[in-house]
Write a protein that binds this DNA or RNA. Sequence first.
DNA 1: TGCGTTCTTTGCGGCAGCGCAAAGTTTGCT
DNA 2: AGCAAACTTTGCGCTGCCGCAAAGAACGCA
Lengths: 238, 238
Amino acid sequence: MNKPVATSTLPRLDESLLSHLPPFSKLDKRQIRTILDQATSRRYDKGVAIFDEGAPAERFYMLLDGYVRVVRVTATGEQVTALHIPAGQLLGIARAIGKEFYPATAMTATESLALSWPMTLWDSFAADYDGFATESYKTVGNRVSEMNNRIVEMATQQVEQRVANALLRLINQTGRKVADGIEIDFPITRQDLSELTATTLHTVSRLLSAWEKQGMVQSKRKRIKVCDPHALVVLSQI
Amino acid sequence: MNKPVATSTLPRLDESLLSHLPPFSKLDKRQIRTILDQATSRRYDKGVAIFDEGAPAERFYMLLDGYVRVVRVTATGEQVTALHIPAGQLLGIARAIGKEFYPATAMTATESLALSWPMTLWDSFAADYDGFATESYKTVGNRVSEMNNRIVEMATQQVEQRVANALLRLINQTGRKVADGIEIDFPITRQDLSELTATTLHTVSRLLSAWEKQGMVQSKRKRIKVCDPHALVVLSQI
DNA sequence: TGCGTTCTTTGCGGCAGCGCAAAGTTTGCT
DNA sequence: AGCAAACTTTGCGCTGCCGCAAAGAACGCA
């Protein structure tokens, strides 16, 4: 779990970075300027931790580019991915749920770019900026819903259905239209998918092979393209 | 899913009902009086829904007595219990996570008593009463943590360990010391336990039988007593 | 007290998916 | 180009757990 090397406050962040994102979309230029001037911008390599589970929640983040996996590690060292977070969302908002320590590790799934602020600014943002608190709580709400869904899924569905669901969620969140299908637009391994669906990389590999034979997906190393989303939906709803 | 019959505002609610509960503990007598005067008190039979998944989130609740299961029902009618909520906690606080509809069904596990307020009061409570909002968010945070734990558990542990964990959680939350062990102080069936741990009542029954033979638990109809919690801890951590 | 309902126990067969193993493929590095 | 590391595929045997079934035990009600 190697930390990123350099912290850099870019000379001048453009206001358009934030102005269209929900937690900030109600603010005027001057407010956004202020917020940006307080922010630290940092680039992260792929596969590094933005913050670690259990560490003091000293900063909160806005993911500007890339994808982040929210991961928990078990006593025996296995990783379980709780969520995928796409660009444009807040991250590490422990303060919004009254936590002083990060409850999970945030790991970049691709090279990523994020702004961050000291957690001490959280309360002033919430107080000063209209809609900021509300939108943050909505973010929490969405994640709660997603976790809820995953619990139900894992409790009631078979591996094949869970993997189908995970793929569908991924192409919904982060899908990119290509020639003959929708591709997950970041590198994702069989291992990653297995950690998302509580199975093994072997089983995922077998499933993808089978689906490929049926023309539902196409995959190569770290790339998965869904050709027939509808077939997956059908599969997932058995 | 039969609804409770009678709504009754009791003649005079005692302030001590709320004064020691975290979301209200920082308030003075006059404030609590005001809050109580706005509250509706209602008794619920065992096994009824306090509110239903998907319904407009029109009220929020404080569970004064009893136990509530937070349940989601799948397309095929199976029930999955996401959480158990003991007395003394807020319930149905959809507003705290920016939701307009209840994300799950709250079902009483025992006869219960709850106060409730119209959701329109949520914002004024948050604005007027010191600590109310913060404590509510902490409640959300704790539930997020618990859900997270359940996801990890279901992803990595075997049935035996999950059931052991569920029992331990139940005796921690709602355990009552008795002669030679700790008893879960509300009626819980094998079926209930299986819905908590994503398995079948048969498997739960078999496990309890086996554990009883080893002297770790004692159980009768709807009652489970843990005699050797430590042994369960050991089991759950394999 | 007797009867229906709800809950629990136990046996048995089957199979989904895991664990292990080994070989094949792609990528990055020097 | 050549090698190591990372990722993927596939086969095979095993087993934990489910599904089905059926009987037994406890409770609630008339």
